[in-house]
Design a protein around this nucleic acid. Sequence first.
DNA 1: TAGATTGTTAATCGATTAACAATC
DNA 2: TAGATTGTTAATCGATTAACAATC
Lengths: 214, 214
Amino acid sequence: MDSDAIKGHLTGPVIRRLSEYLLILDKLIIEEKEVVSSRELANNYGNNASQVRQDMFHLHHTGAQSHGYETRELRAAIADALGLNVYKRLAILGVGNLGRAIAMHVPFEDYGMKLVAAFDIDKNLSGSSISGVPVYHTDNIQKVIKKEEILLTALCVPAEVAQQSANQVISAGVCGILNYSRTRLKVPKHVAVHYEQIICSFMQLSCQVQHKKS
Amino acid sequence: MDSDAIKGHLTGPVIRRLSEYLLILDKLIIEEKEVVSSRELANNYGNNASQVRQDMFHLHHTGAQSHGYETRELRAAIADALGLNVYKRLAILGVGNLGRAIAMHVPFEDYGMKLVAAFDIDKNLSGSSISGVPVYHTDNIQKVIKKEEILLTALCVPAEVAQQSANQVISAGVCGILNYSRTRLKVPKHVAVHYEQIICSFMQLSCQVQHKKS
DNA sequence: TAGATTGTTAATCGATTAACAATC
DNA sequence: TAGATTGTTAATCGATTAACAATC
């Protein structure tokens, strides 16, 4: 397969946009729209048609006629390029409000992931389930991660225990962490960490709003 | 004040990094570290010293001696540049798990914002409070937003009602929206929208992990 | 055919990194 | 002084935008 070679060339910004196009396409598909032009897609996303076409170019997606892209075909091409056809097994650490929100409302199955476990330090939660997934006590992190062959983890624990939790899941084989805890993590080079500092998004918004006014 | 002129020149990527530096500095300050070098800050954030110094340059922050930056001074300079000294009043729409998580765990007060209201369509929640903030029924959005002079809103409602909710808050005067609902919004030009598509962050992580392996 | 829209290259723009003299 | 580290300019790199021939 040369799709691996293609994927290897996608840069961060392109990957991000492709994933956002995917959501837009899914909405269009539900609306039974069969064809979409680069211009329409750009209007939806908020960029310009040139960039959309450039992104398709990176994707090597040539299945387009000269009157737009087939929504379903494009959806499949993007999903393939992002590797969503190879299901990734996922765990959530911390079943507070945030962990719960993610477990319950993020449609992992539609986008190449499968939530298979959740962990919490609260013993009252052990043995319960959320969104059809068992909640384990944090004592069992290593054992369950290995047994369930979990690759990705969302860290929704307090900052104080985040590094320790990260260490545990990494030593059990996790190689991708989405970090919602308000702290920077030290991890080995083979592990990818994405930081989702909610407060930083608020600051960014706040800062931009202010300029518009003045 | 020329601080406005400075702020106007900060670009998106710079603003984002500055806000992240702020969190790192706060950690260092708690640890009673009084001076930090561009190299140390870069190690914490995960970029390089050159970029850190370039960011300080954009900030016009010259208060540095030739053996590092005073953590407290730098903290203040960044907060000033980001406009965090002018408190922004904030509301959360949707008190589900996500809205609750944000209300309870995001330290707005430390970063120039003040949460003053929450809204939910569930009448059982009306009149209750969360994190010391009253929860109103969505029928009162316009009235309360105006009365409380709310500028920013976090949208934590289901996709189906997101556009409608956005319309309401915008017409009441909100000019910045942090959108956690899985949908694109159509808004007038004077309104800033930041998209936080959680599923897209997972896809990005998943995609990158895959390449590291192959 | 005329019109719409793509695929692709080239031009522009902006962001990151490197380099180094100046400073304490 | 020697060493560490900044401030700032220049060089590099990458991402976005523009342009337009090719296609249906």
